[in-house]
Deep mutational scan, measured.
Amino acid sequence: PDDLEKRARELLKRGKNPDEIREYLRNAGYDQSQAEEALKRAL
């Protein structure tokens, strides 16, 4: 898994919901489609 996916998994483990994770990834400078893909793979 790429770093983005790892980060998404990490956040899920900490109890973040998908919307929070999307926002976090966007704020971290990733584009929307990258964030969506990583989140899908992590779920």
Rank of each mutant, 00 (worst) to 15 (best):
P1L: 15
P1W: 14
P1A: 13
P1S: 12
P1T: 13
P1E: 12
D2R: 10
D2S: 12
D2Y: 10
D2C: 14
D3L: 09
D3G: 09
D3V: 09
D3M: 11
D3Y: 13
D3I: 09
L4H: 05
L4Q: 03
L4G: 07
L4C: 11
L4P: 11
L4W: 06
E5P: 05
E5Y: 15
E5A: 14
E5S: 09
E5G: 07
E5C: 13
K6W: 13
K6P: 03
K6L: 13
K6G: 10
K6T: 11
K6N: 11
R7T: 15
R7G: 04
R7H: 11
R7Y: 15
R7L: 15
A8V: 15
A8M: 11
A8H: 00
A8I: 15
A8D: 00
A8Y: 03
A8T: 10
A8E: 00
R9A: 09
R9H: 07
R9Q: 07
R9K: 10
R9I: 09
R9M: 09
E10L: 07
E10H: 06
E10A: 09
E10D: 11
E10N: 06
L11P: 00
L11F: 05
L11A: 04
L11G: 01
L11I: 01
L12R: 03
L12A: 04
L12N: 02
L12G: 01
L12Y: 05
L12I: 08
L12T: 02
K13Y: 07
K13I: 09
K13N: 11
K13P: 00
K13L: 13
K13G: 10
K13Q: 12
R14T: 11
R14H: 11
R14W: 09
R14S: 14
R14G: 11
G15L: 03
G15Y: 03
G15W: 03
G15K: 02
G15Q: 02
G15I: 02
K16T: 06
K16I: 11
K16W: 15
K16L: 15
K16S: 09
K16Q: 08
K16V: 13
N17L: 12
N17Y: 06
N17E: 09
N17P: 06
N17A: 11
N17H: 13
N17M: 10
N17S: 15
N17T: 15
N17Q: 10
P18V: 11
P18E: 09
P18N: 05
P18M: 09
P18I: 12
P18L: 12
D19A: 09
D19K: 07
D19Q: 10
D19V: 06
D19N: 10
D19E: 11
E20K: 03
E20Y: 10
E20M: 05
E20S: 04
E20Q: 11
E20T: 04
E20L: 04
E20W: 13
I21P: 00
I21Y: 02
I21T: 02
I21G: 00
I21V: 13
R22N: 03
R22Q: 05
R22F: 13
R22I: 15
E23H: 06
E23I: 08
E23D: 10
E23Q: 10
E23P: 00
Y24R: 03
Y24H: 08
Y24P: 00
Y24M: 14
Y24Q: 06
Y24T: 08
Y24V: 11
L25N: 00
L25S: 00
L25T: 00
L25E: 00
L25I: 04
R26V: 14
R26E: 05
R26G: 04
R26S: 07
R26C: 08
R26Y: 09
R26Q: 09
R26I: 15
R26T: 10
R26F: 09
N27G: 09
N27S: 11
N27M: 14
N27E: 12
N27F: 08
N27P: 00
N27T: 09
N27H: 10
N27A: 14
N27L: 14
A28H: 10
A28W: 11
A28V: 06
A28L: 15
A28C: 12
G29S: 02
G29K: 02
G29T: 02
G29I: 01
G29Y: 02
G29D: 02
Y30P: 01
Y30G: 03
Y30F: 12
Y30V: 09
Y30A: 12
Y30M: 08
Y30L: 09
D31A: 09
D31Y: 03
D31L: 08
D31F: 04
D31I: 05
D31V: 05
D31Q: 07
D31W: 03
Q32T: 13
Q32R: 12
Q32A: 14
Q32L: 13
Q32E: 14
S33K: 14
S33E: 15
S33W: 14
S33Q: 14
S33M: 14
Q34S: 10
Q34A: 13
Q34G: 04
A35S: 08
A35R: 03
A35L: 14
A35I: 15
A35V: 15
A35K: 01
A35E: 01
E36T: 05
E36D: 11
E36C: 08
E36Q: 05
E36P: 01
E36G: 03
E36S: 04
E36H: 04
E36A: 05
E37L: 08
E37D: 10
E37I: 09
E37G: 06
E37S: 08
E37M: 07
E37A: 12
A38F: 10
A38Y: 04
A38W: 09
A38N: 01
A38G: 04
L39Q: 01
L39K: 00
L39G: 00
L39W: 01
K40F: 11
K40T: 11
K40C: 12
K40I: 12
K40Y: 13
K40V: 11
K40S: 11
R41G: 05
R41L: 08
R41Q: 07
R41F: 04
R41D: 04
A42V: 14
A42K: 01
A42E: 01
A42M: 13
A42L: 14
A42F: 08
L43I: 09
L43V: 07
L43F: 07
L43T: 06
L43W: 06
L43A: 05
